[in-house]
Design a protein around this nucleic acid. Sequence first.
DNA 1: CGGATCGTTAACCATTGGGTTAACCGTAGC
DNA 2: GCTACGGTTAACCCAATGGTTAACGATCCG
Lengths: 104, 104
Amino acid sequence: MVNDPFRALSHPIRRGIVERLAEGPATVGEATAGFGVSKPAISKHLKVLEETGVVARVVVGRTHRLSLEPDVLSEAADWMDLQRARWGRLFDVVDDYLKENESR
Amino acid sequence: MVNDPFRALSHPIRRGIVERLAEGPATVGEATAGFGVSKPAISKHLKVLEETGVVARVVVGRTHRLSLEPDVLSEAADWMDLQRARWGRLFDVVDDYLKENESR
DNA sequence: CGGATCGTTAACCATTGGGTTAACCGTAGC
DNA sequence: GCTACGGTTAACCCAATGGTTAACGATCCG
């Protein structure tokens, strides 16, 4: 999978960036303030988010404006919801199953 | 974050295992057939899923029965849905924003 | 022009990740 | 008892991650 949103979201800093961008577009400085890592580290995280198609970048003068690219993230959200719907049908079944096994 | 479901889901094999377990509990062999990697590799993926609290294991004789542990995955699904709800309010705004910047 | 600002690239380093093979453990079954 | 089976552990390998500092590029502004 070339666009792997789960990989993109597997680091807390990148999730933090996504959270901020979910409020609306922002510059790199705005979207990444306060994470306590160096600028090159931030730059790498942004590269991952951009490569996976989670974030889009528009260069405006010397600042880079970032915005969320909903499609790829929606894919991930859809996958999660689908799995949740499937396991949701099993709630009670699982309990029974475990009890059955414990008593074997 | 000690229980990081996104890390757990960041590998396609682990997502595959989750998909199978969303249909219902299964043994290791059942849940992980056909991934084309060795058994130790599988074992490591299962360890990750177990450590992150995504999967529970009950040893029955010489087989290990796996089942999905819904809580941690639900956390992730909730996070995704929350972000989607937030960025959803921005759809048109983003378009305007990009156009505005392109014309600068 | 010259300095400050926003952000990236380069080079490097330590750790983690994901895979392998070989060996092992415990249980099942003949 | 012994072999087959389900699965893990150990030891190892290489590539990818995530961080650093130092330097750079480009733009803005006095």
